[in-house]
Simulated scan of single mutants.
Amino acid sequence: MSGAAQVEIVEVGPRDGFQSIGPLIPTPTKIALIEQLHAAGIRRMETTSFVSASALPQLADAPAIVAAVARMPTLDSQVLVPTARHAERALAAGARHLSAVLSVSERHNMGNVRRTPMESVADYTQMVAMMPADASMRLNLATSFDCPHVGRIDRDAVLALLEPLVAASADVEIALCDTTGHADPAQVRGLFAAAADRFPQVRAWAFHGHDTYGLGAANVLAAWDVGIRIFDAAVAGLGGCPFAPGATGNVATEDLIWMFDHMGVETGIDLQKLVDAARAVAELPGAQVGGRVRQALGARACLAAS
């Protein structure tokens, strides 16, 4: 599709999705699913997270995952790190694309990493300083739209927190995250437009959304309308934040690929192979899945077979 508009999909199912599943997923199963997603054309993936094993035992195998994906040279594997200490662990394990996270909401940030947002800003500054020359950073700003404890987040609060974060480094990709899935298209469009206008020096912006109220794809399209071209999504709609009770999964990757394919936007991802991977993910014990395209294509296939 030469000359077509393009979008970059960041598959976050192996991190945001897997962390929400209760029964431990064997490491070889995780690696096999990551390989299946890669075979579908996904070239950027949040594969794991370096966090406390007692808090999220599902991700205790992070070093093994980093070692396995290192054998996939065409995969850009990013790993989530909530603190500088965990960033050190990730770098020591060989990770070279870190994804830092802090929350706009003080209550959410305290619940997540037991520190205030400004304390996390100081911690993030340490992360930026320790980054090797061959490594890159993404910054996830959680609860940019809504907090499970205090409700809707004021736009000015997001912009105010971005000031010291951008001052620490503008050479990062910043994702504004709808952690609870409460955002609406007008709010998404307005915040991204305001952030891009206030901080034109930021290298790139991304959107991370959940589908709690069925607006995941609509919010992605709203961000697209104001120039955002990087979107997080989770295969089969997996996801849910342990520190945001009631939040359901991320917007399903296959739903976004269906939408962008029909808009004539190039994704580089094979929808049928992706749906096959989504069906495998949906069979994981304890997986809570979402999305519509997987089910619609399955129903179409059953109708054709009959």
Rank of each mutant, 00 (worst) to 15 (best):
M1D: 15
M1W: 10
A4N: 13
I9L: 15
D16W: 01
L24F: 12
T27L: 11
E35W: 04
E35V: 00
L37T: 11
L37D: 11
H38E: 14
H38R: 14
A40Y: 08
G41L: 05
R43N: 12
T47A: 13
A53M: 04
L59Y: 08
A62M: 05
A62I: 04
I65Q: 12
V66N: 06
V66T: 12
V69S: 05
M72C: 02
P73E: 08
D76Y: 01
D76M: 01
L80D: 10
H86D: 13
A87V: 00
R89S: 14
L91S: 08
H97E: 12
S99E: 14
V101N: 09
L102C: 09
V104R: 10
V104Y: 07
E106L: 00
N109W: 05
M118H: 15
E119K: 05
A122C: 04
Q126M: 02
Q126D: 13
Q126L: 02
A133T: 14
M137P: 10
N140A: 15
A142D: 11
G151S: 10
R152S: 12
R152L: 07
I153N: 10
E163S: 08
V172G: 02
V172R: 14
E173S: 04
T180I: 02
A186I: 13
D197V: 00
R198L: 06
Q201K: 10
V202L: 07
V202Y: 08
W205H: 06
A206P: 13
D211S: 02
T212I: 10
L215H: 15
G216V: 06
A218S: 15
D225A: 13
V226Q: 11
I228M: 09
R229D: 09
R229Y: 04
I230F: 03
A233Y: 06
A233I: 00
A236R: 06
L238F: 00
L238V: 01
G239N: 05
G240P: 08
C241F: 01
P245W: 01
T253M: 09
E254P: 08
D255A: 06
W258C: 06
W258E: 15
G264A: 07
T267H: 11
D270F: 00
Q272C: 01
K273N: 10
V275R: 09
V275E: 10
V275D: 11
A280Q: 15
V281T: 13
A282Y: 07
P285W: 04
G286I: 03
Q288F: 00
Q295D: 14
G298L: 03
S306Y: 05
S306P: 05
